[in-house]
């Protein structure tokens, strides 16, 4: 698998490393994907890197690569953001993968080997939900709202109604709420706030987990929040050009 720039992989790692220490990457002809739970079983993260993300991608036989995120992060930090990354896994000796970073103009090449682990990762079945509400908005705006309100209180309530979407945080000595209305004024798609809902709803989540989730804003300029009172929230970041996505499912807090 060859990525034109290591930046995407670095951003993906940054988006999951607080939640997941080690995980299996499933490789098949479609691409590379992973699904992992945090230790508290409160958030599930799914990453899909489709073939379209790669400059070249070949997978003769489906493989599962057990990766420890810590050493993987250390190796990736040796790659310049603009360097090409090639990951090779051999079907003959499946105890390691090779990573090669190439910097074209500087004629520099570095090679690493990463030991693979035997991880009995359990996969969870995530049913396709009919969502009560869906919000798409700039990922940077969602990140700022979450980071700001997380300072106000540890519970983040998201309410959808005809008023728009209201984010509320409640602390011991302060409370704050921010209301976003659907924005049709702006023309740039990535700046728009779109809200659709079948009936008003309100759900509460742990702000510290939502903070970790917003780190994936580096991967996509827009984020989609899908809510339904019977389900965990789905926070989805779609990468450009159908390269793939990162999705988080966060369980709610309930009275």
């Amino acid at each position: 698998a060859r990525l034109p720039r290591s930046a995407v992989l670095k951003k993906i790692l940054d988006s999951v490393k607080d939640l997941v220490k080690e995980t299996n990457w499933d490789c098949n002809e479609e691409g590379m994907s992973m699904q992992a739970l945090d230790t508290g079983r409160i958030v599930l993260v799914e990453v899909m890197l489709r073939e379209a993300a790669f400059e070249s991608y070949a997978c003769e036989v489906p493989m599962t690569l057990g990766i420890d995120m810590e050493p993987f992060g250390k190796v990736l930090r040796c790659a310049g953001g603009d360097e090409k990354v090639t990951i090779k896994a051999s079907r003959n000796d499946q105890d390691h993968i090779e990573l090669v970073f190439e910097n074209e103009e500087k004629e520099r090449m570095s090679a690493f080997e990463l030991k693979l682990m035997d991880i009995d990762g359990e996969h969870m079945a995530v049913p396709d939900a009919e969502w009560g509400a869906e919000i798409s908005m700039p990922s940077s705006e969602f990140k700022k709202i979450v980071m700001d309100l997380a300072e106000i209180g540890s519970d983040l309530t998201i309410a959808v109604s005809k008023l728009g979407v209201t984010f509320t945080a409640q602390g011991n000595n302060c409370k704050g709420s921010m209301v976003l209305q659907p924005s049709t004024a702006v023309d740039k798609k990535s700046e728009q706030v779109a809200i659709s809902f079948t009936e008003p709803l309100e759900m509460t989540f742990a702000a510290p987990y939502m903070k970790m989730i917003t780190k994936a804003a580096a991967l996509s300029s827009t984020v989609t929040l899908s809510l339904d009172e019977a389900c965990p929230i789905c926070v989805r970041y779609e990468m450009e050009d159908n390269a793939g996505h990162i999705k988080y499912y966060l369980a709610p807090k309930e009275d």
Binding site: G40, R41, H123, M124, A125, E254, D255
Partner: peptide, 14 residues
């Protein structure tokens, strides 16, 4: 305050 639920209340093993 509200009590945190885990994903096991919503998702089963595949």
């Amino acid at each position: 305050g509200a009590k945190q639920v885990t994903l096991d209340a919503f998702f089963g093993p595949r």
